[in-house]
Write a protein that binds this DNA or RNA. Structure first.
Length: 577
RNA sequence: GCGCCUGUAGCUCAAUUGGAUAGAGCGCUUGGCUACGGACCAGGAGGUUCUGGGUUCAACUCCUAGCAGGCGCGCCA
């Protein structure tokens, strides 16, 4: 029940009717008309800009137009208490108690549906995220994108879209080769005591390789590890599946579960790369050519080579991109084009890729390929998650893979817990760099939004305990006939904005809005709670240790929204803290 | 040099995607625990939204030209 959408429709219908009667002119496009949340100082529940939008085309003062609309609105809507017309031409609407009573009845009886925008067109999404190389466990750097992708999926699912979560496994190429080699040398070390060349920059030095190697030895007693070439491909698949076990365990600890792990090797072995290149060739998007050297550095080392190129410049990229290496093997880009063609063939309405900031430069070429293959724009949406700046003991913490001093997801979870990791990573827009201060994240104070929201839920739970109920119990109300005070209406207004929050974060794929909203809702609650100290009528439990239906409904509504919100974010809501 | 992201209070960030007097937390400052959970609340000080131009009834938001920071820029993935 999105009251903003409901009233937007009412207002659009109204001006369409007025237009048909020849009373007003309307623009072709009604999209700039909106129904919004009015600023607090105006004592209204919703507001609309309709008069200002119509003013120009009607050559009429917005205030006068607003007056006309006001009269008609009031006459036809028994829910409206008063309408204010303010300065430039805003129409501010305040509802009667009956409106809030009906509203609460609806959201309490259908509590599990509140927030869903059910009239939105339902789509079938594919979201690809994490997709870290399968050469070891995940580290904190992967964490933000992982959580972002997971929560975007949760929002879309909450809004009743279909979502398939996918992890692309880059189990092919040079990095995998050196990874396999590293495992091999670790195995030799274990079996034959040959020391692992820890300083070789082309190898993976991490200690986790020792455990991987031990597992491989233990599970494959029949393999002879004397000659690398004889077993390299077998060893690759064994090493990767060991890596994936680690990665899946990491993701599980973050509360993340993918529906599908798509292997790159499989795409290549199915000849999909060759097929997609043939397809592009047919449509004239591929040619043999040379790439120009970058303008500045290392000009002297540049060797021009003729290679198979994809015309990504036709779709706005800076240069055309190579599909084939000089040794005739495919580039990473080529197999990724094939992978995206594979996605296209599975007929999703929209494909979402979550990328780290360091891969942002890749977006143009991959969306170019999707456009070339599908002819449709906007089939692929790429979301970039900016860097996370780690702060430990008040100082920035730099991770270096070489030295092996990086923080894994295990370390992170052990130190701050899944809930804090998820909530804090979401607390900022994905477009801005995020400070992740280990000491602050653990802090149990207002400085930490996670605890602030959880504390709100815990307080509500404690009220339910006092009346010998549980916060999850369904409540039965004889009649919704209440008259809430202005301070309580403030909470109701905030609650009424929940579906709108979902609507926008779902449309814009911006999960941080959920975290912000939950914080604000908690804030209005905490504020009201403290009023109870001076004013007993604002306490939930009265002198007789009872609670009125009016207050009970209010608490139930708040806690239901917090529960849905925290479920979407994927964090727990303890009843006691 | 080019591309992407960012620039808002001393610090970290919001801002209903173009709306009204730009809001929170931290820090500073003044108050509130014999209390349904103080992990909280109320008040105060703090702003030329990086700069210049443009579009609009309306610009933190869009366009444009700059400035500053981050990330990336060959057949690595």
């Amino acid at each position: 029940m999105n009251i903003f959408k409901i009233y937007l429709k009412k207002i659009k219908d109204l001006i369409l009717t007025l237009n048909q009667k020849g009373l007003i002119q309307i623009p072709k496009d009604l999209n700039s008309i909106n129904v919004d949340i009015p600023p607090e100082q105006f004592d209204s529940d919703i507001s609309t800009n309709v008069a200002m939008v119509l003013s120009k085309i009607n050559k009429n003062n917005p205030l006068e137009l607003a007056k006309k609309i006001e009269n008609i609105l009031k006459k036809n809507d028994p829910n409206i208490d008063k309408i204010d017309i303010v300065k430039p031409g805003f129409i501010n609407i305040k509802f009667k108690p009956i409106f809030w009573n009906d509203f609460l009845k609806e959201i309490i009886t259908n509590y599990n549906k509140f927030g869903i925008n059910k009239n939105e067109v339902k789509k079938n999404y594919l979201i690809e995220f994490v997709s870290a190389n399968p050469t070891g466990p995940l580290h904190v750097g992967h964490c933000r994108g992982a959580i972002l992708g997971d929560v975007i999926s949760n929002i879309l699912k909450f809004n009743q879209h279909k979502v398939s979560k996918e992890y692309y496994v880059n189990d092919y190429g040079n990095q995998i080769l050196s990874f396999t080699k590293s495992v091999y040398l670790r195995i030799r070390e274990i079996l034959n005591g040959e020391k692992f060349p820890i300083d070789n920059p082309n190898l993976y030095p991490g200690d986790y390789l020792i455990q991987i190697s031990k597992n491989i030895i233990a599970e494959n007693k029949n393999i002879n590890f004397d000659n690398f070439d004889n077993i390299s491909s077998k060893l690759t698949s064994l090493a990767i599946s060991q890596s994936l076990i680690l990665i899946k365990a990491n993701l599980k600890n973050l509360g993340i579960f993918h529906d599908n792990f798509q292997s790159e090797t499989e795409i290549i072995n199915n000849n999909e790369v060759q097929n997609v290149i043939d397809k592009l060739k047919k449509n004239n998007f591929v040619y043999l050519g040379k790439i120009k050297a970058p303008v500045d550095e290392m000009k002297s080392n540049w060797v021009e080579r003729e290679q198979l190129l994809f015309k990504s410049t036709e779709f706005g990229d800076d240069k055309d991109r190579p599909l084939q290496k000089s040794d005739k093997s495919w580039t990473y880009f080529a197999s990724d084009v094939a992978y995206h063609n594979n996605k296209l063939n599975r007929n999703f309405d929209t494909m979402i890729n979550i990328l780290g900031a360091d891969h942002a430069g890749y977006i143009k070429r991959i969306s170019a390929s999707v456009q070339a293959l599908s002819g449709k724009k906007n089939k692929l949406i790429c979301k970039v998650s900016q860097l996370v700046k780690l702060i430990k003991d008040g100082k920035p913490f730099k991770m270096s893979k070489r030295k092996g001093d990086y923080i894994t997801i295990e370390d992170l979870i052990k130190e701050v817990g899944k809930d804090a990791a998820r909530f804090i990573m979401l607390n900022r827009s994905s477009d801005v760099e995020l400070d992740f201060d280990f000491s602050k994240v653990k802090e149990k104070s207002k400085d930490n939004p996670l605890y602030y929201v959880q504390y709100c839920y815990a307080r509500i739970s404690s009220v339910f305990r006092h009346i010998d109920k549980n916060i999850n119990d369904e409540i039965k109300i004889k009649s919704y006939n209440f008259n809430y005070s202005p301070d309580e209406i403030k909470i109701l207004q905030k609650i009424s904005q929940w579906p709108r929050c979902i609507e926008i974060s779902s449309k814009m794929l911006e999960p941080h809005k959920i975290a912000t909203y939950l914080y604000e809702l908690s804030s209005t609650f905490h504020s009201y709670w403290n009023m109870g100290k001076d004013d007993e009528t604002k306490r939930f439990i009265n002198k007789d240790k009872k609670i009125s239906d009016e207050k009970l409904v209010l608490l139930k509504a708040i806690s239901n929204v917090i529960r849905s919100g925290m479920n979407i974010v994927g964090v727990s809501i303890p009843e006691k803290m």
